[in-house]
């Protein structure tokens, strides 16, 4: 298992990127997190997390075409790398292990 540890928010961003597939850029990523947490998400925090993940080689990005509804600015599309996928799986395994056998979390709503 990799020694890197994903933070809570970084994991959410990675999962949102995976869920969105080819259409993963800032707006749908932040919306996906907002819908799952029911809290407003700061675009600056989303990009700060994406920048960290990109530096660690867990996500990669490429620039799309500029569009008028974005004031002539291009979208930046993100996708998960193989290393990133491995990292998410490792984190999932670790969390499931920790999750199991805690009475307070069994069968609750």
């Amino acid at each position: 298992m990799s020694r890197e540890v994903l933070g809570n928010f970084e994991l959410m961003v990675m999962l949102a990127v995976m869920r969105l597939g080819d259409g993963a850029y800032g707006v749908p990523i932040s919306r996906a997190i907002e819908e799952s947490t029911s809290r407003e998400v700061l675009m600056g925090s989303v990009y700060a997390a994406l920048e960290r993940l990109e530096e660690k080689g867990l996500v990669a990005s490429e620039v799309g075409n500029p569009t008028p509804e974005r004031g002539g600015r291009a979208k930046r599309y993100f996708r998960i790398t193989k290393k990133g996928l491995r990292q998410v799986r490792d984190t999932q395994v670790a969390l499931i292990k920790l999750w199991q056998g805690i009475p307070a979390l069994q069968g609750g709503t």
Partner: peptide, 17 residues
């Protein structure tokens, strides 16, 4: 700051509109 400044601005403008 950072490499994504332009993308952040584009995302914010898109959501504002």
């Amino acid at each position: 700051s950072g490499p994504h400044g332009d993308a952040i601005l584009g995302d914010l403008i898109e959501q504002y509109r």
